Simulated scan of single mutants.
Amino acid sequence: MDQLSYSAAWLSRWREEITDAVSSMISTFEETYGYEPGTNEVRVADEEDLRAARDYGRELLGFEDLLTFYESIGEVVLPEVGNGYFVHSARDVLHRLAEEGSVFVPEADDPHGMVIASNGGGILYVADWGGAIHRSRTASLDDAEFDKVADNLPDFLDYIRRCVVRFAETGATGDL
């Protein structure tokens, strides 16, 4: 993406680029893959999402980039892109955090985090309290090991964008 700093405007541009790539892919999806695609979207935050984002903002844990994200984007649902990519809604992130507590990420400077995304194979993406994003090596968080995939949320989101564009153009997703 261009040099726009991470903000609501950056997220709007990010959403547009993914939406354009997905629209291109969906136009020939059934012909290419032999079945009708489901819903693939980057959903703009609605009132319920904004309320959850405000609740998130009151939490003691987390970081500003994630709050900025949830004030603009409700969720990302891309089941037809590769194995599927999903950035969970603020509601879902908060619910999981309340029910299961923080995720232990021993590889992080601050080893506490929260699940913010997943893929269709059950791999989880955890944001540590410092803002870095880590990918679980397995579909289970029991004794999970993680690999850092991005230093911050904007880098992670840009990587998702590049994977979506690559998949729309070539059918290859990369290693997200």
Results as ranks from 00 to 15, higher is better:
residue 65 D to S: 06
residue 121 G to C: 12
residue 6 Y to Q: 10
residue 37 P to Y: 10
residue 107 E to Y: 04
residue 12 S to N: 10
residue 95 H to A: 13
residue 70 Y to P: 01
residue 111 P to T: 04
residue 63 F to T: 08
residue 47 E to N: 14
residue 26 I to E: 15
residue 90 A to V: 08
residue 45 A to V: 10
residue 163 C to A: 13
residue 43 R to T: 15
residue 123 I to F: 07
residue 77 V to L: 14
residue 72 S to R: 06
residue 144 A to V: 02
residue 147 D to L: 06
residue 114 M to A: 08
residue 22 V to N: 02
residue 60 L to Q: 09
residue 88 H to A: 08
residue 135 R to I: 03
residue 53 A to M: 10
residue 24 S to W: 12
residue 66 L to N: 01
residue 96 R to H: 13
residue 164 V to F: 01
residue 135 R to Q: 15
residue 89 S to P: 04
residue 42 V to M: 06
residue 3 Q to V: 07
residue 53 A to S: 13
residue 118 S to E: 11
residue 105 V to L: 09
residue 2 D to Y: 11
residue 120 G to R: 02
residue 35 Y to E: 12
residue 154 P to F: 01
residue 111 P to Q: 07
residue 76 V to C: 06
residue 156 F to M: 02
residue 25 M to G: 06
residue 137 R to L: 12
residue 148 K to V: 05
residue 117 A to Y: 11
residue 159 Y to Q: 14
residue 57 G to I: 01
residue 115 V to I: 12
residue 134 H to E: 08
residue 89 S to A: 09
residue 72 S to Y: 00
residue 76 V to M: 10
residue 51 R to S: 13
residue 35 Y to T: 06
residue 167 F to E: 01
residue 164 V to C: 04
residue 95 H to C: 13
residue 40 N to Q: 03
residue 121 G to W: 12
residue 86 F to Q: 09
residue 127 A to Y: 00
residue 15 R to P: 02
residue 172 A to Q: 14
residue 101 G to F: 09
residue 30 E to N: 07
residue 53 A to V: 10
residue 169 E to Y: 04
residue 106 P to Q: 02
residue 164 V to A: 05
residue 48 E to L: 12
residue 71 E to D: 09
residue 37 P to R: 06
residue 13 R to A: 11
residue 157 L to G: 01
residue 169 E to G: 00
residue 10 W to K: 15
residue 38 G to Q: 12
residue 32 T to F: 05
residue 128 D to H: 00
residue 27 S to A: 09
residue 63 F to K: 10
residue 136 S to L: 07
residue 88 H to Y: 13
residue 32 T to G: 03
residue 58 R to N: 14
residue 31 E to Q: 13
residue 159 Y to R: 07
residue 141 L to Q: 06
residue 144 A to E: 07
residue 137 R to P: 02
residue 131 G to Q: 13
residue 121 G to H: 12
residue 58 R to F: 10
residue 38 G to Y: 15
residue 159 Y to T: 11
residue 45 A to C: 11
residue 135 R to C: 03
residue 173 T to K: 10
residue 166 R to T: 11
residue 124 L to V: 07
residue 31 E to M: 14
residue 5 S to K: 00
residue 119 N to C: 05
residue 17 E to P: 02
residue 34 G to Q: 04
residue 56 Y to W: 14
